[in-house]
Amino acid sequence: MKSLYLVVIILFLVLCSAQAQNKKDIQLLASELHSDYYKEETYPKNVFVSYVKNDSLFKRFPDVIRSFEFAPKTSLEEYITDCDLRVRKLKKQFDGQQKSKDFEAFWKENLRSCYAKYIQTSPELRFAFELQKNNIVYHINEVTVYVYNARIPLSTDKDYFEHKKDEREKLVIDITKIGQNQVLKLSQAHAIKDGGLALNLRLFSSEYWNGSFERVKVLLHVSFRFTNGQIIQSEPFMVEM
């Protein structure tokens, strides 16, 4: 009987060990900008002290925080100015007549190219994952976003994998939900298998475009939950979106 208990205990330990091992199968290799319209800056952690309410979370911050900031060139600035003028003209023309359901369609119809430019110039971040074992496939179908703060008033490509094409997702983040996790479903499950996964997240602060190119600085981190139960959390970063 004692030996049976011993066998059960050993089996339990082996299973736990295997599960623990599974949870470390995936590694986040890099997170980087995947946009021509942004530049990367860095700020010391202390700059954000007043913007993070949870002290224990702030203590875990790295010493340097990366910031992805909108940096339009002159030609893009001119385009944005032109779009702003058109938006103002349309707002005046359709004053009070916009129905919320038709809002997106309305803008898309009248400002098709401006909308395209807005989508094109939205921040896109690439998260590169590596799988330690090459005969297993895991998936990811949702991410969790934690917004520390938004509207932070600061004055101020290299490829890791040879994927035929990157997996791309639009992520609409509610920047008013500060200090809480928001689970965001991806439009499809993305598989991580031999060779890894490069998941590109295009970040938006609203489902609909309001016609403005004005962007808000948001401090956040993203957590990725894979089907092996492993959760990988990115470092906190700031992004203008």
């Binding site: 395209a116 430019k117 989508i119």
Partner: peptide, 21 residues
């Protein structure tokens, strides 16, 4: 001139259009 374009190679190409003035 204002150009509007998207990828016809990607399934989600239309969702991620581009524009040029």
């Amino acid at each position: 001139a204002e150009l509007y374009y998207y990828s016809i190679e990607d399934d989600d190409g239309k969702e991620y259009p581009g524009a040029e003035m």
